[in-house]
C-alpha cells in the first residue's frame, strides 16, 4: 500500500528550516507488518538523509525512539502499519522537552529528574556471612516487578499534562523508578526517597489524569505505581500497600 508521512521538522543549522515546520513524504510498497521505525528509515535512507531521530534496538527494549505518532506517544519500533487506521502517519517529537533537531529532543531534564529520586539500591548492612545472596521471597519480589520494566523512554512523562505545565515536576518515569526501590524489601532508603517525592514537585503534582499508563510501551501500570507511592507517603510505611494478589498478567497493549 501507499502511505503518506507528515513529519514535524526542525533543523537549527539551516536558515529557513530553523523554525518548526511540517513536511510530507510518500512511500510506496508498504507492508502492513512494517514498523514505523523502518518506514522512517526508508525516508531517511532513500529520500532525505537529514531526517534525524534516535533509535537502536528496533524491538521496543532500549527506549530510544519515543515519539508522538498520530498524536499519541509510542515507540516507533513498536507501531506497525497494521495498527494504524488508514494510510496517513503523523510523527512529531515528544512534548515538554526542548527539540534539538527533528525528532530528537534534549533528554537531560528528564534524566535530571530521574537522578533526583536516588535511583539506586541502598543497603549498607553487612551482606550474609556465608557470602551468598540476600534472600527475598517470591512474593516480596513480586511487589516491585512491574516497575523494574521501565526503559526510561520518557513516553509517560512527556504525555503528562502536569509535566507540560510544569517542567519541574519529577514526572511519572522518575516516580516509577523510585517505586522500584521503595517497595524492594532489601533496600534501606525508602524514607529518603519518599521525602523527595513528598516535596511540591513530587507525586502530588500528579492529578491522576491517566495519560501515562496507556503511553507506557512496557505495559507498566504507571498510575497505580504513583498511587502506591502516594499511599506510602500518607501512611508513613511501605508495608501492606502493594496488593500482589491483584497483580495480574496483562495482555500487552
Amino acid at each position: 500500500m501507499d502511505v503518506t508521512f507528515r513529519i514535524r521538522r526542525y533543523n537549527p543549522d539551516i536558515p529557513g528550516k530553523n523554525k518548526p515546520y511540517w513536511q510530507e513524504f510518500r512511500l510506496a510498497d508498504v507492508d502492513p507488518n512494517d514498523r514505523v521505525l523502518e518506514l522512517l528509515h526508508r525516508i531517511k535512507w532513500e529520500q532525505d538523509g537529514t531526517l534525524t531521530l534516535r533509535r537502536s534496538c528496533a524491538h521496543g527494549v532500549c527506549g530510544s525512539d519515543a515519539m508522538r505518532i498520530n498524536g499519541v506517544n509510542k515507540l516507533a519500533c513498536k507501531v506497525l502499519m497494521r495498527d494504524i487506521n488508514g494510510s496517513k502517519v503523523q510523527v512529531e517529537p515528544i512534548l515538554g522537552l526542548p527539540v534539538i533537531k527533528d525528532l530528537v529532543v534534549d533528554m537531560e531534564p528528564f534524566f535530571g529528574h530521574y537522578r533526583e529520586v536516588m535511583p539506586f539500591f541502598v543497603n549498607d548492612e553487612p551482606v550474609p556471612a556465608n557470602g551468598r545472596e540476600r534472600l527475598q521471597s517470591p512474593d516480596d519480589r513480586a511487589q516491585y516487578d512491574d516497575t523494574t520494566k521501565c526503559i526510561l523512554c520518557a513516553a509517560c512523562t512527556t504525555s503528562c499534562p502536569s509535566f507540560w505545565a510544569n517542567g519541574k515536576y519529577v514526572g511519572p518515569a522518575a516516580i516509577v523508578q523510585a517505586h522500584r526501590f521503595i517497595f524492594d524489601t532489601r533496600d534501606r532508603a525508602a524514607k529518603e526517597r519518599l521525602n523527595v517525592l513528598a516535596e511540591p514537585n513530587g507525586v502530588w503534582r500528579c492529578r491522576t489524569i491517566f495519560n501515562c499508563t496507556p503511553a507506557c510501551p512496557r505495559g507498566i501500570e504507571v498510575t497505580r505505581a504513583i498511587g502506591e507511592v502516594k499511599l506510602a507517603i500518607q501512611r508513613g510505611t511501605t508495608t501492606g500497600i502493594v496488593d500482589i494478589s491483584t497483580i495480574h498478567i496483562k495482555e500487552p497493549t
Partner: peptide
C-alpha cells in the same frame, strides 16, 4: 552474580528466596 545481587539486581527467586 552474587555481587550483582548485592547491588540490588532483582533476580527471580526460588521458594526459599534464593536466586
Amino acid at each position: 552474580v552474587i555481587e550483582l545481587e548485592h547491588m540490588g539486581l532483582p533476580f527471580d527467586r526460588t521458594p526459599e528466596g534464593k536466586i
